[in-house]
Simulated assay, not measured.
Amino acid sequence: MFLASDNTGPVHPNIMQGLAEANDGFAMGYGADAIMDTVRAQVREVFEAPEAAVYLVATGTAANALALATLCAPWQTIFCTPVAHIHEDECNAPEFYTGGAKLTLVPGGDKMTPDALRRSISGEETRGVHGPQRGAVSITQVTERGGVHSLDELRGLTAVAEEFGLPVHLDGARFANALVALDCSPAEMTWKLGVDAVSFGGTKNGCMGVEAVVFFDPAKAWEFELRRKRGAHLFSKHRYLSAQMVAYLADGLWLETARQANASCARLAEGLKARGCNFLHPVEANMIFAAFPRRIHQKLHAAGAQYYVWDGSLEGDDPDEMLAARLVCDWSITPERIDAFLAHFE
């Protein structure tokens, strides 16, 4: 059973069908395909943003790095948390694509607080030409610890950014999981709160590999196009990105898969709680951080259920030592698989 990441799951059949249909005949390349026109209309409708500029790339790293490069000059700094994906897991791609903009880590956990953000922003632009200038604020939703910012929490952060005239980027690799957890609209979670650009994820939620970058101010559109091409992320056979996003958004599939993933995670969390596991972070979407004894980890590995992320060594003298694990549910995990995983805790 694979619980290491929602990247490990299969592509949803509807999206595979969309790819098969797009594979018929010929289509213009580089985003000029007719399917992309449908994508733009869909995304604008979903976000209630008729003027939004909408672009597709194949990876979340490209979406984040190119969006931030469009929002941030090389001599500026991007404000994010110490565990943000752009800091921990993107091999300095934001610094590379921005041409040298640094990251300023706002003290705290997986969520910034307005006070901490204000202090961090105030701490920059204090050395004139010698120091970094203030740049974009990047917020992760769902966070890397499985947390979901409430609308009030997001509003507090965007208000601080507005005080300093800074743009706001939302890393939404798990955007749909956060949205269904909050039971709000995409507009309420983004531009209505002051978000300027969003990386709208699809790959972790049933797609083969596609992310949308949405700018609510179309003034940034041409620059992003140039950066995407220059950065080698403009697909020639772009229709295969477009086809995924069309199928993903059609008839609310993206919300259905997110609800399935979140519901599976809730079932798993309830089972772990009943078995006395210690939770390291609240379970709010489709990610669990919990600790359970080494002997359980060993039992899971012996049974072939080892495909998850854990801390510490499986070899040790104390079978009851608690080792932390990260468990992530994707849209395809069934109740039977969850129950089979939990059975190893008996």
Rank of each mutant, 00 (worst) to 15 (best):
M1A: 11
F2A: 13
L3I: 09
D6M: 02
G9A: 04
P10R: 11
M16G: 12
G18N: 14
A20R: 15
E21D: 15
N23L: 09
F26Y: 15
G29E: 11
G29F: 05
A32P: 02
D33V: 01
D33N: 01
Q42I: 01
V43C: 06
F47N: 02
E48W: 01
E48T: 00
P50A: 07
T61E: 12
L68M: 12
T70F: 04
L71G: 04
A73C: 00
P74H: 05
I78F: 02
F96C: 12
V106R: 10
G109D: 14
D110L: 07
K111F: 13
T113G: 04
P114L: 06
R119W: 14
S120M: 09
I121S: 11
G123M: 09
E124R: 15
E125F: 07
T126R: 15
R127V: 14
R127P: 12
G128V: 13
V129W: 07
G131A: 12
G135C: 04
S138P: 14
T140E: 15
Q141C: 09
Q141L: 14
T143E: 11
T143R: 08
T143Y: 08
R145Q: 15
G146E: 14
S150H: 03
L151F: 12
E153I: 11
L154E: 08
L154V: 07
G156H: 05
A159I: 06
V160I: 09
H169C: 10
F175L: 10
F175E: 11
N177V: 06
N177W: 06
A187Q: 12
E188I: 09
M189E: 10
M189D: 08
V195C: 05
V195L: 05
D196M: 08
F200I: 06
G206A: 01
C207T: 07
M208K: 10
E211S: 00
A212R: 02
V213F: 00
F216H: 03
D217R: 01
P218C: 05
A219I: 00
W222L: 00
W222C: 00
W222I: 00
F224K: 02
R230P: 09
A232R: 13
L234T: 11
S236Y: 13
L241Q: 07
S242D: 05
Q244C: 06
V246P: 06
Y248P: 01
Y248S: 00
Y248L: 04
L249W: 07
D251K: 08
L253T: 06
L253D: 03
W254Y: 10
R259V: 00
A261L: 02
N262I: 00
R267S: 10
P282V: 09
N286Q: 12
M287C: 11
H297C: 10
Q298M: 15
G304E: 14
L314R: 05
G316L: 04
D320V: 04
A324G: 04
R326H: 03
L327F: 05
V328S: 03
D330L: 05
D330R: 08
I333L: 07
I333A: 01
I333N: 03
P335Y: 02
R337Y: 00
I338H: 02
D339G: 02
